[in-house]
Design a protein around this nucleic acid. Sequence first.
DNA 1: CCCTCGTGTTTACGCGATAAACGACTCGGC
DNA 2: GCCGAGTCGTTTATCGCGTAAACACGAGGG
Lengths: 255, 255
Amino acid sequence: MIDPDTPEARGGSAAVPFTGGGPGSGRGALDQRRIIEAAVRFIDEHGLRMLTMQRLGAYLGVEGMALYRHVPGREALLDGVVETVVDELFGDPDVHLEAHAGWVDYLQRLAHGLRRIALAHPEVFPLVATRPPAAPWVRPPLRSLRWIESMLEVMTEAGFSDENAAAVYRAFSSFLLGYLLLEVSGRGVETGPVEEPDVAATEDLSGYPILQRLEPHLSVDAAAQDFEEALEALLDRVALLLPRRRRPPRLTEQK
Amino acid sequence: MIDPDTPEARGGSAAVPFTGGGPGSGRGALDQRRIIEAAVRFIDEHGLRMLTMQRLGAYLGVEGMALYRHVPGREALLDGVVETVVDELFGDPDVHLEAHAGWVDYLQRLAHGLRRIALAHPEVFPLVATRPPAAPWVRPPLRSLRWIESMLEVMTEAGFSDENAAAVYRAFSSFLLGYLLLEVSGRGVETGPVEEPDVAATEDLSGYPILQRLEPHLSVDAAAQDFEEALEALLDRVALLLPRRRRPPRLTEQK
DNA sequence: CCCTCGTGTTTACGCGATAAACGACTCGGC
DNA sequence: GCCGAGTCGTTTATCGCGTAAACACGAGGG
């Protein structure tokens, strides 16, 4: 009984012809792109909780360990997933963040585009919203420096001061990410675990001049202040639902 | 070799005198309350990711499996954690949701109270905000029926129609949970995994008459609509940061 | 004194991530 | 043509997790 075991199903492409309902049958070598895209589809279909290395392997017609040849580990894989999904927005013709008509239009497109992503990949979105961003000092963490830069550019060109542009960024991304995170998590989705801030990630900021310039404004922690303002705005908005007679006085001045 | 093993360190209270930095040394029988409170402290100190049954056991000076005598499982334990933390708000003298001066004051206290919880237990808060609520059809999911009932009561008494009260509930809890979830997750906290909706959980609604009455209004999925409104409100608010001259026209009518 | 119950402990299993060793195909140079 | 070095997928193994099941000890009632 020296080696009677499975003389077949070893090495090379001897493995299963196909394994799941997935795209496993379409063989062709693995590579990082392929794996990440499969992961996105897998998460969309089965949810983040079901994503394990072995299951993803099977989904690709391969043993789980094979994936480690192409991605450093599960966390890195998820980073790739986030990036892939985020990049969808840039390819979206409906958004085309360049060809906009004014900042209001721009922000609306951005918001709707992001919401479309959230609804298209609800199981992935929590990762997008909560994973530590490339530049950890930007708070809240829109995950793409390109987005941030683009948005800041539009806002400053529209006449917002640096400080106000940063404030708008904070208010807007807080609202957007918070709202969508909650909307998605209300649809039976679970928000996934996250790795640690990964300190050494102070990425290369060349190529993002505005972001660099606004760093001092962006890295302030104005959470308390922003919270108060957003809350007051909300309360004022709520008050409009009452008949004029019973309405309390506004909390925010109109200048 | 029938039973020569460890004649000591068995059964009863033979176990470690103390095991972690935790309250392990304070012996006294386990019970559900004790375990849950320890879990809250443990999560506050070490983060949700570090909470495992064995570690929590060690923290209490006991083997992990001992916990299963008092708690049906990990998920149930987390439910208990959420409930405990949520209940802190009701004991909070600063909030005292009963003795308020008008609905604006009420909502402000509620918001600040909830934010205080979020900041006091940042590692726990994601559970509070994303765990399936007791009444799964209420969307978004404030985790405490008492809160919801209390809020709806205040709003309807203040003169809001049923429909508007529900709309306020949605807007308010969306804002609050979304904002805080994001704020907390930006502070290096990870949002935890969640179990499935757990279908059979259609809880007993007697005792929550208003909630019952507003069920039709609360269970509508107005996410898209609410999103648009909140977005427009935000954009209007942003516009106020510009000098009057460059300001675009308002998106929302002022009635 | 023994039986039984309550409570904590041990053992055991399945599954997850992942390190390490393995085996088979694939070339570039000779 | 052959060979030695990648390259890539597979196996095996380790460790930690949640939890079921069997176990052991102390207390209390016959």
